[in-house]
Amino acid sequence: MKTEVIAKKTEKKAMKKIITYIVLLILVFVSAIMVVFQVFEYRHDYRELSSFTREKDDLNAEWGRLLIEQQTFGATAQIGTRAVTQLRMYSPPAGQTVVISLPITSEDKK
């Protein structure tokens, strides 16, 4: 009778060990899968960040070109204003305009 009780206790201990190992094994696999998903999300977010950074650099370059264009147009208006005010330049009327045309050669007709 004692041997049966001892045998049952050892069987229960062995069963508890097996269940504990199975639970621990399942937890290890679950944590491994979670690590894989976290790495996947990190790489996806990093790719998205890289594309946003590239887009930001492209927009900054375009902004620089637009600033240069704005300065160019501003300088053109300033040059025209200075030509009129300081040098007293003006556009001549149609009566003072002379149009010079070159004679047409046979090579130009081709």
Rank of each mutant, 00 (worst) to 15 (best):
Y46C: 13
L27I: 04
A32K: 04
A77F: 03
N60L: 10
Y42H: 13
V5I: 12
E55W: 00
E69Q: 08
K8G: 12
T72F: 05
T105S: 00
A61I: 13
T105K: 03
R47T: 09
E4R: 15
S50A: 06
S31H: 09
I22P: 06
Q38L: 15
E4K: 15
V28H: 06
D58W: 01
I19N: 11
M89N: 10
V84G: 02
T10E: 15
M15E: 11
E11A: 03
T81I: 14
Y46V: 11
T105R: 02
F40Q: 14
F37A: 14
I100Q: 08
P93W: 08
L59N: 02
S91K: 10
L102P: 00
F73P: 01
T3N: 02
T97K: 06
K17M: 09
K109E: 07
E4Q: 15
Q96C: 11
Q78Y: 05
P103E: 00
K109S: 11
R82L: 08
I100S: 05
Y21P: 04
I104P: 00
L49Y: 04
Y21V: 09
M15T: 07
V36P: 03
V35L: 05
P93H: 06
D58F: 03
I26H: 07
L67M: 13
A14I: 05
Q96N: 11
I33P: 00
D57F: 03
I104G: 01
I6D: 02
L59M: 10
V36H: 12
I26E: 10
A7C: 04
T76G: 07
I68V: 13
K2R: 13
T97F: 00
T20K: 11
M89D: 10
Y42P: 06
K17A: 13
R88L: 03
V30W: 04
K12W: 14
M1S: 14
A61S: 15
M15H: 15
K109P: 02
I19K: 10
N60M: 14
F29H: 03
Y90R: 01
V84R: 12
E62R: 12
P92K: 12
R54I: 06
F52H: 15
T3K: 07
I6H: 08
Q86D: 09
V99C: 02
G95L: 09
G64Y: 01
S31T: 13
Q96P: 02
N60T: 12
A7P: 00
S31Q: 11
K9H: 11
T3C: 01
A94G: 01
R43A: 04
F29S: 05
D108C: 05
T53H: 02
V99K: 09
L59D: 02
T20P: 01
T76V: 09
S101A: 13
I68H: 11
T72H: 08
L27T: 01
D108V: 10
N60K: 13
I79E: 05
I22H: 05
E69P: 00
E41Y: 15
L27S: 08
L102W: 04
K56I: 03
T76H: 09
S91F: 03
V98G: 00
K17S: 13
G80W: 08
K9Y: 06
D45R: 05
Q70R: 11
